[in-house]
């Protein structure tokens, strides 16, 4: 299982994404955007999954893979 951090253009986008992931049975939570990542909005979604998840309609900006205390951008909209 990999750890991902998804950033958004708006807080509501993050809320929508988090809710959609939870509906799919994925453990996801809202948190402030880590210092290492730049983002338009201060809310990100942290989740654990096999792969980065792309969803339309929730103002997704980027998805980062967290590994060895580093963040690697896996997806940018």
């Amino acid at each position: 299982m990999n750890r991902y951090i998804a950033t958004f253009s708006s807080h509501f986008g993050a809320l929508s994404y988090c809710k959609a992931l939870k509906n799919q049975g994925i453990a996801a939570k809202l948190m402030p955007v880590p210092r290492r990542v730049s983002s338009s909005c201060g809310t990100c979604v942290y989740y654990e999954s096999i792969s980065a998840i792309d969803l339309d309609g929730c103002e997704l900006d980027s998805v980062y893979l967290e590994a060895n205390n580093r963040l690697e951008c896996m997806l940018r909209k």
Binding site: S9, S10, H11, F12, G13, L15, E59, D61
Partner: peptide, 11 residues
Amino acid sequence: FLNKGYTLKRT
């Protein structure tokens, strides 16, 4: 407002 969907759209 944030929780209800407020956004000024992306940069």
